[in-house]
Design a protein around this nucleic acid. Structure first.
Lengths: 199, 199
DNA sequence: ATCCTCATGTAAGCTGTTACATGATTCC
DNA sequence: GGAATCATGTAACAGCTTACATGAGGAT
């Protein structure tokens, strides 16, 4: 009975690893801070869990010995609980991160706009084009946000990787923009070749 | 008390609309067939629900009057239940599809590989590159599958839109490939500028 | 005979969200 | 004084997956 017998590491949902990942960067943080950070950065290439779930994951991670926390004493104004990763947590996380690409499975993409385009036969052509145009607007907004987040990123030490991820995100949003423009062009061509009726 | 008082259409999860969408194309189908189709096509730009959930959604859609079904009699070898969309279902679906782009929210992307890259400070540089390389392989495989699916698509009548969606998917996978290559290059540059140790 | 595909479902259980409750602090 | 933000949680429940159960038909 040394420590825990190889522990199959894998049994946790990705979200748990994502939260533990947030803790793996220097500094101790509250659940609240984690949520802000996830909103500002993680969400662009992965996902930002609800705050209530972050709290739940933190409790689970602590129960597993992957994180520890301490309640701030009266020296601080607010009562808050700051979490830090443990050595065991760091080891488990590193092991998880080193898994094969297959383990993470293909990226999950749920594209509501495409779902609607796929059902284009039910909509007026103009409505469809408007939908894609709105999507382009939204993507531009998000691209701005990614760039903002990138601006904040320092890019030194362990922070190079989050910066890399954000750089990827920026490119990804640019690609999304191009895909949407191409889609719009496809829709236009469709209307030209098969007008509402007539000729 | 006319029919149902405008009915707020919206209250269903996207998945329900996706399943109803599958039914909105010509022909009647069993849940089993729907699943096969979702696996072959829907999943590339949206998602393929578990078979058990498809059955559940079909029951719900029927309860709502959006679909109807009939059990195949003894004229057919196997006992199966074929579903068809109703007029009410088609109307509700059309209304849902016509909503603003904002309603569908931004595309949801959960990229496990990026999550791991984001945690690059915990991994050996080589492992990280291998991870991305494996991801590229996987993406190539999926690209092939998209192309295969596109090959099957007829591209006439209401089928133009599914074809459009698959064309988008093909481009999307090509973009994913380029993003991964660029990421690989970024990782290489990182190693050059900050080698393991020494010079 | 055996295995694969077709075909439909039930049950248990986890993941994750929204809504709610609570209270302190800071900013205007 | 009031609103926004900080901060943490609970409870209810929707969504979805896995595993299991069942059985027929077709292929080897």
């Amino acid at each position: 009975m040394r420590k825990k017998q190889v522990a199959p590491t894998q049994e946790l949902p990705q979200t748990a690893w994502a939260v533990l990942g947030l803790l793996s960067f220097p500094g101790e943080r509250t659940g609240y801070e984690l949520k802000k950070w996830a909103d500002a950065s993680l969400r662009f290439f992965y996902w930002s869990p609800a705050i209530s779930q972050i709290y739940a994951e933190l409790r689970r991670l602590e129960a597993l010995g992957y994180a520890r926390s301490e309640r701030s004493g009266p020296e601080e104004p607010r009562t808050k609980r700051r979490y830090a990763i443990t050595d065991g947590g760091r080891a488990a996380l590193a092991q998880w991160a080193a898994a094969e690409a297959v383990e993470s499975g293909p990226p999950v993409l749920k594209h509501g706009v495409l779902l609607r385009v796929w059902l284009g036969h039910l909509a007026a052509p103009d409505r469809l084009r408007a939908l894609v145009a709105e999507h382009i607007e939204g993507t531009r907004d998000r691209l701005r946000e990614v760039r903002e987040a990138r601006g904040q990123a320092s890019g030194v030490g362990e922070w190079v990787f989050p910066e890399l991820a954000l750089r990827w995100s920026e490119r990804q949003h640019l690609a999304e923009l191009e895909l949407a423009e191409a889609l719009l062009a496809d829709l236009d061509e469709l209307t030209v070749r098969a007008p509402g009726d007539g000729s």
